[in-house]
Write a protein that binds this DNA or RNA. Structure first.
Lengths: 114, 114
DNA sequence: CCTTTACTTTAGTTGTAACTAAATTAGCTT
DNA sequence: AAGCTAATTTAGTTACAACTAAAGTAAAGG
């Protein structure tokens, strides 16, 4: 659901990254080092289910881009928010608030099935 | 926060009730018998904190009314949702889904402080 | 084949939003 | 004053969204 998808500051942060140009999932993750790749992937899935992003696959990469048309009147609202310097601080505060365990992801080193 | 306040189907249901005319808290509660008075009051508080409702006090009653202006472009979006018959079914489904224990409120019968 | 890279999915944890029951506050009536 | 009624607030419960770690999938390159 549109309103539900936009209620999360994390998802709005992602949406903003892919507002003007598509980016790969890894690219998006690199822009938000406080969460794991899995977390970003799940949020992208939520956005996709809400119809707010479009996906393109190329080789081993998946590219995401915001579907502005699907946002209707909210597109303007979001852009206004992002343009407002005060809002930038609010977003930072919101993210800080919802960041409870920012430990780094461990490196995988081959399979360990037992 | 606007988007956050609108993300809850329960709050949108309340907002809709007080869209065209003010209603007392008890009146609102009577329109949603599946939750307690306390639950409605807390949601009204959330809406008030987001600046989405205005309150008026008269004798022992508190009247609430939607502040459409505060909703900006979302006002239209909400009205469009409510006008759409399909959306009515979706709202019903959402509420049904989030209704986990619709037991009636017990009658108070004097204080028991022990 | 095996390993690495890119990403998704699953299983399990945790913080918080939405709720209930009870206590509380406040106004009205007798 | 006591006893209503209207509504809020508090304390505690529960469901769920957001996360992590690990496993799984898939493509590229040795």
């Amino acid at each position: 659901m549109l309103l539900n998808a936009l209620a999360s500051p994390r998802r709005r942060e992602i949406l903003r990254l892919i507002w003007d140009e598509e980016r790969s999932a890894g690219d998006i993750r690199r822009a938000m080092p406080d969460v794991t790749f899995g977390a970003v992937s799940l949020q992208l899935k939520t956005l996709a289910q809400a119809g707010l992003v479009e996906t393109r696959r190329d080789r081993q990469f998946r590219y995401y881009r915001a579907r502005r048309a699907a946002l209707g009147p909210m597109a303007q609202h979001l852009e206004a928010m992002w343009a407002d310097a005060l809002w930038k601080l609010k977003l930072a505060a919101e993210l800080e608030e919802s960041r409870r365990g920012p430990r780094p992801e461990r490196r995988r080193r081959g399979k360990r099935k037992d």
